[in-house]
Write a protein that binds this DNA or RNA. Structure first.
Lengths: 217, 217
DNA sequence: CATTCTAGATAGAACGTTCATTCTAGGCTA
DNA sequence: TAGCCTAGAATGAACGTTCTATCTAGAATG
């Protein structure tokens, strides 16, 4: 009773401060990018002193790493949301519906940070490692999701069969963030029909492959 | 004879130096990003002095702007290549073939810079303006390309009809760059079939719309 | 044709600022 | 009282930009 609450309290205190820094840093990084944001800026945004921040993070890179990991959690929640909504069976509708949700999130706040993270990952091995590990988790989840959807139709699919399709669909999602930067006048709703059509086609094609597979068995 | 070569020579000299700086800066930016690259680094890479660089560029932002504009030229060449190769009529094959070309370019060198440019555009209005203007040019070209392909089939299409599809396809292309960062083990060839299938489906769908359109006329 | 002149080309030191990080010291909690 | 929490000054390096000075190529001049 004397040890556990103490430790817990301390952990909680530290966890709160860490979260405070990460939240402030997220905001700063969104506005100015990783390398144009100073520790002083973050400290002001967090309402903490510079030394205080260094008490919880070894250096600026560690803050960046923390944020990238935080980002992963968000994507996994996105997966989980789709999984639940597609429980009824209609994977396409679940994805397209969530696309709206996703885009709203995106358009309001997350696009710059997402692009910053991936751009950073393209040249910073530490960030790349986190991003790549996160992606493997996400891709695995999606493969499971696809397998489930196929099973509901009484079909079986080889995981390797759908890698190409899954990559293409992932590119579609990731690419939307870039499109919204390149063409900010674009109303996301404009391309929802096209996206729905592409999604449906891709899944239909996978189903065809699965059918062949199971008949070949 | 006395004026033109003089002026020309001077312009040429300046142009050479400008290009020299841009080339060196491109390399540096690829490796370290815009904001982690110093003028000293660029000057060393270019084999020029710092003062020399400032003789041709007002500041670092101007160098970034120069590079972003240079990037546009490359994308326009990509358009032109597709246009020529699809002259025979098969737009899909031209795009898919060029996809390979595009990916090789991309994978070897251009991905980090492209991502850096778009990430920067997401928060730097000056860069955003260039990127957005470039995108409008590119999108226009693609619409023309689509219209041509449709005309070859004796179809007519309303430009507004294909905006959504075009955006989705553009997202697909842009997204590939992000995918290659998130999953570097991905062999681009793996998803070529899926991409081809999606491209074909999108174009087929547009053709259907066009047919309706022309029969409604 | 030799010389002078000039404007741009080029180098690198100098400047003031800002940065990431460390250090020191006081404060709070258990 | 012991140990973490917190602040903010101190530090040294690096940055973008400016400044000054030298140099060079080619135009003008005689």
């Amino acid at each position: 009773m004397t040890q556990t609450p103490d430790t817990h309290h301390e952990q909680s205190r530290a966890a709160v401060r860490r979260a405070q820094v990460l939240k402030a840093a997220t905001e700063c990084f969104r506005l100015h990018g990783f390398h144009s944001t100073s520790i002083v800026q973050i400290s002001k945004a967090a309402g903490m002193s510079v030394g205080h921040i260094y008490h919880y993070f070894a250096n600026k890179e560690a803050i960046i790493a923390g944020i990238v990991e935080q980002d992963l959690q968000q994507v996994l929640m996105f997966c989980e949301r789709i999984r639940k909504n597609s429980a009824g069976g209609d994977l396409i509708e679940a994805m397209v519906d969530d696309l709206r949700h996703f885009k709203q999130d995106m358009q309001e706040q997350d696009i710059p940070l997402t692009l910053e993270v991936v751009a950073e990952a393209a040249r910073n091995p530490a960030v790349a490692a986190i991003v790549q590990a996160a992606d493997q988790t996400v891709q695995l989840r999606f493969r499971e999701l696809l397998a489930e959807a196929m099973q509901l139709r009484g079909l079986e699919i080889d995981e390797k069969e759908c890698v190409g399709t899954l990559e293409a669909l992932s590119a579609l999602f990731d690419g939307l963030a870039m499109r919204l930067v390149r063409n900010p006048q674009l109303d996301p709703e404009t391309c929802v029909p096209a996206l729905r059509s592409l999604l449906a086609h891709a899944l239909e094609e996978l189903a065809t492959k699965a059918r062949r597979k199971s008949s070949a068995h």
